[in-house]
Design a protein around this nucleic acid. Structure first.
Lengths: 134, 134
DNA sequence: ATAAGATCTACACTTGACGTCAGGTTTTGT
DNA sequence: ACAAAACCTGACGTCAAGTGTAGATCTTAT
């Protein structure tokens, strides 16, 4: 029995979980949602993953921080990994991307407004402390 | 029985819900979490709210969009409404605010990076379409 | 060869943030 | 005065995003 699996650069779920900082249960869950697919599953064996899986999980985390749901992420994540020449419905892809761009700009605007408010509050409290000290 | 309640500028839960764009159940829920307190509840009467409740709910919505949980919001929202002269532990308040500022800056950075990626992707797909048209 | 450790599937449970429903009380328009 | 509308509490339901557990199977180190 040749070491047909750990050859190359494939890893098992435990390693992937450690490297991506998520639990193996989360990986199972993400697989069910279509966010990521293991490389080999012939027979009833283990899941094996390549390096891309790590960056994929990182991308998922990043998109989550931006407030996308896992379903939404599932519907766009392939754009980041699919071979460009193989993309279908490029117009639709463009639409999705432009929507993301608009939402991102909106979010940046909101955050900047929020930032300004926080700064005002800080100034206010600092002022109070100054006055309290005389 | 004097119209002791709808005097002034107090409103009931239904009006508040409409004005803030949330359900009355959401308002009940938020009250339980300490995010907002009705003005009068003597006896077994209704909840009454003033104008501040509206801006409070707007602030809650804004903080939610930034990714804070309701518990986290509960722990900071009073900073925005408390009478400045009455704030206790101003140093602690400052710490909290500075933490928020740092997190906000980090989020803005991430969003900008993400924005750049999205733009790259748009350029890539546009390029593909151009080439496909020849 | 075998025991330990890693992984498998399947199902149940949890948490946050509400929504629904039921049955009762309070206000308000007429 | 009284019905309709608004409100009350409390229990239960739901959906997303996981986590926990059990019992079986697979891999690997010795």
């Amino acid at each position: 029995m040749p070491a047909s699996k750990q050859s190359k650069d494939l890893m098992k779920i435990g390693d992937l979980a450690r490297r991506a900082g998520v639990s193996h249960r989360t990986i199972h869950y993400y697989e069910r949602l279509g966010l990521l697919r293991p490389i080999e599953r012939e027979g009833v064996g283990y899941r094996y993953f390549n390096e891309e899986a790590v960056t994929r999980l990182e991308k998922v985390a990043a998109l989550k921080r931006l407030g996308l749901s896992l379903d939404e992420i599932a519907s766009v994540i392939d754009l980041y990994f699919e071979d460009a020449t193989g993309i279908r419905g490029k117009r639709r892809v463009l639409d999705i991307l432009r929507g993301q761009l608009a939402r991102t700009d909106q979010q940046i605007l909101e955050l900047k407004g929020f930032r300004a408010e926080v700064e005002e509050n800080i100034a206010r409290v600092e002022d109070l402390i100054r006055k309290a000290r005389g």
